[in-house]
Design a protein around this nucleic acid. Structure first.
Lengths: 143, 143
DNA sequence: CGGTAGAATTGTAATCATTACAAATTGGTT
DNA sequence: AACCAATTTGTAATGATTACAATTCTACCG
């Protein structure tokens, strides 16, 4: 039961499974916190001591290239990843650094912008920055 | 006449002018190519040999903090900057790396997403990735 | 079963953007 | 001219990501 979902996910996106790929996919599916490559590595390394950081980077690239995950460039420090590939926006709290999912009012992202003829869009992202509710109530001064 | 616009721009956003700040602001206003800090430094350094890269970074941070420019995280390699702070989207061509401006059909960015109560939005960005018209006609194979 | 080719993984070293920091310079004020 | 604060500079550090060559794994074939 434990690894069923990751395996299905990889197969559905044409990614050949391996212990490392299943572990990364599993982590992404279980932790919807938009982790960075380093966070994933640090979380998996204790229980999978042979895992290398390069493999985590390679796997994440493979997953995003095959549509099994999405990479977010909302945080200028490092890229982070999301196993939820359905259309939704993201909100980065610049105080605590958390990235929140935000549902879209209108699912047709491309219709928002007037992209010129001849341009082929492959990906769309909507990013918000600001102060999340938790930080706003914690620290009134800076919010 | 040459530096009038940059000076006005800095003053309008409460940034105390200096030769370096005017040069960076001037470059951003003249080059709507969404340059990175390094591109700006490389372009200005020949005619301003004492300019340091740290100053370019410091100045860009100052400009964005004061609303005289916007920083884009559309390119995962490096942050880039735009002197046009009016609401518009951006399109990154993953082939040639160019960032294009894209007008918005609906100027109210925040209304697109259902941001939860208590969250305070300070910035919104819409990013597209894909293949631009020029690259599409150049190289049919990869587009 | 054992051998083998190709793919996947690993670890280390390099790269590259960005930041930290302390020293030097500049600008405005008395 | 003298002084304080702000700005700039150069160098060194940091930190994420990638390059690369060596090792290990996997699937297939005899």
């Amino acid at each position: 039961m434990e690894l069923t979902a990751p395996l299905r996910y990889l197969r559905a996106h044409g990614v050949k499974p391996s212990a490392q790929r299943l572990a990364v996919m599993h982590y992404l599916l279980e932790h919807r916190t938009h982790p960075s490559a380093d966070e994933i590595y640090s979380a998996l390394h204790p229980t999978m001591p042979t895992l290398s950081k390069t493999t985590v980077y390679n796997t994440l690239r493979l997953l995003t290239e095959n549509g099994a995950a999405v990479q977010l460039t909302i945080d200028e420090r490092n890229v982070c990843f999301d196993a939820d590939t359905s259309p939704h926006a993201h909100f980065l709290c610049t105080r605590c650094g958390k990235v929140y999912d935000v549902p879209l009012a209108n699912y047709d992202l491309e219709r928002h912008a007037l992209i010129p003829e001849g341009f082929r869009t492959e990906q769309a992202a909507i990013y918000y920055r600001g102060c999340c509710e938790h930080c706003a109530s914690e620290n009134v001064a800076t919010c």
